[in-house]
Design a protein around this nucleic acid. Structure first.
Lengths: 155, 155
DNA sequence: TATTGTTATACTCTATAACTATA
DNA sequence: TATAGTTATAGAGTATAACAATA
């Protein structure tokens, strides 16, 4: 007790201890997501940027003038989280809030010049990181995967 | 400013604001994972159990006597997190630690009788939740997805 | 009265260092 | 000295209620 051999001579596990969960798509998906997220985080490490902040910057760039509430909804985060994130992006000089003249309660979100410069770099890194993480797949499998994940998201 | 129409007459967004990120497998995967995780959490709501605790219970059941460090490695969590989780499973009477005679530093982890009873229910719920979340896919697409995710995990 | 953004707060999750008891 | 487990702690991430300004 432990009743089971834990290590093969090579130091590799004899069999994954969670093999019996391999039939659950949710479980397997989650395992892969953790790996890819960590890989991207590592690839971003020279910048003070996390994957969600990258997504936020990207979405602001694609949708100049959008409101905080829209950004929050798109990223599936709560409005208070959006406030904190945008504060940070603003402090870093990457994005800015501009008060909306028509509805003075709200702000339009915009990317700054230096935000655009950084975003270009981050986009290249993210694309590269995606390639790294999916190097075991053929081009065909990649597009199959994107199609299937698209269906799952639209549900 | 906002410079862009935000709502279609139905209340649905004109186009997803993150459409341009749809080519990044990591991003799309993460979106889907969030949905499936939330769905499973909701389906577990009548029990005081989270998806990770379910996985832990499942793995303990499949590998009776395994050590905490092995469980932590399998779940990709740090040893201190494993301690907290196992404490909770023990307090709930679902799992137990038994000191290893050969190496008195370590424990073997075991599932209890009532843990087994609960696990059976949770397995059924998890399988059902997986089906719900993947109802948009054909059987063929489900197996394609599992194959591809398997490759990504093994990398 | 409802909505946008904000603050405060709390709870979970994650990560690290330092400790204990064994080896 | 090294390892298994533990404690303490701090930092992210997440979620909720309550508030100010505006509609």
């Amino acid at each position: 007790m432990p009743q089971q051999p834990k290590q093969a001579p090579t130091g590799e596990p004899v069999a994954p201890l969670d093999r019996a969960l391999d039939g659950l798509i949710g479980y397997v998906l989650s395992r892969v997501q953790i790996k890819m997220y960590q890989n991207l985080t590592n690839n971003f490490s020279e910048f003070d940027i996390r994957p969600t902040q990258f997504s936020a910057l990207f979405i602001i760039h694609q949708n100049p003038g959008l409101m905080q509430a829209e950004l929050a909804r798109t990223l599936a985060i709560d409005p208070p989280q959006a406030v904190v994130m945008i504060n940070k992006l603003e402090q870093q000089g990457l994005a800015l809030r501009i008060r909306c003249k028509a509805d003075k309660r709200s702000y339009g979100l915009f990317i700054s010049k230096s935000g655009e410069v950084l975003l270009k770099k981050l986009e290249a890194i993210a694309a590269q990181s995606d390639l790294e993480s999916t190097s075991a797949l053929s081009a065909d499998e990649c597009s199959q995967l994107l199609t299937i994940l698209g269906k799952l998201y639209r549900n």
